[in-house]
Simulated scan of single mutants.
Amino acid sequence: MTNLRKAARRLIEEVYGEGQVEVLDELCHPGYVSHDPLVGDADLAGVKAYVRLLRACFPNLEVRILGLYVDGETAITWWSMEGNLARRLLDVEPQGQRIHMEGITVSEFEDGRLIEDTSHWDTFGYLRQLGLVRPLGPMARVTEEGARPGSSQA
């Protein structure tokens, strides 16, 4: 049986951290699919393309594994990534923006090979750091009449 802890670590450190997309061929089942809030669903070729884009836009990307848990055929990796934008991305011109991302990836293995993973990460924070969205601001603003937005005035 493949060491799932090692495989999950390689996915984050070697593939995303170093851009070694060929490692995916070793780790993944031919029917592999990835689910990501920004990219959507992707097959092996799609994930390779995304990693290449990510590494091109953030060539100094630093990845850290903050926690790694394995139960049966499932690995859960808590990770962070940080780097400076060096190439146009989502219509954002690079100005050296330092971007920090943190999330978890739930990886499902079958016969020792990665068959599916689902990532959950602070996508809104990422887009905010790129300047594409902004926070709504304080949600408890008082209107001129003294009522909080959304409260009923009976």
Rank of each mutant, 00 (worst) to 15 (best):
S34E: 13
S34A: 13
S34W: 05
S34T: 06
H35T: 12
H35M: 06
D36N: 10
P37W: 07
P37V: 08
P37T: 09
L38R: 01
L38D: 09
L38N: 08
V39Q: 12
V39K: 05
G40K: 02
G40F: 04
D41F: 09
D41Y: 08
D41W: 10
A42V: 07
D43S: 08
D43M: 02
L44A: 01
L44W: 02
L44C: 01
L44M: 05
A45W: 03
G46R: 06
V47T: 14
V47D: 07
V47F: 01
K48M: 09
A49K: 15
A49G: 07
Y50D: 11
Y50T: 09
Y50F: 09
V51E: 03
V51G: 05
V51H: 03
R52M: 06
R52Y: 01
R52W: 03
R52C: 01
R55W: 08
R55K: 15
R55L: 02
A56F: 05
A56I: 02
C57Q: 00
F58W: 04
F58M: 05
P59H: 11
P59T: 10
N60T: 11
N60Y: 02
E62Q: 15
E62Y: 03
V63N: 01
V63D: 06
V63L: 10
R64K: 15
R64L: 06
R64M: 03
I65R: 02
I65F: 01
I65H: 03
L66I: 04
L66P: 01
L66Y: 00
L66R: 09
G67I: 05
G67T: 10
G67V: 03
L68D: 12
L68T: 08
L68C: 12
Y69V: 15
Y69W: 14
Y69K: 08
D71N: 14
G72A: 14
G72H: 13
G72F: 15
G72V: 13
G72M: 14
E73W: 12
E73F: 10
T74K: 15
T74R: 15
T74A: 10
T74Y: 14
A75G: 10
A75L: 11
A75T: 13
A75H: 12
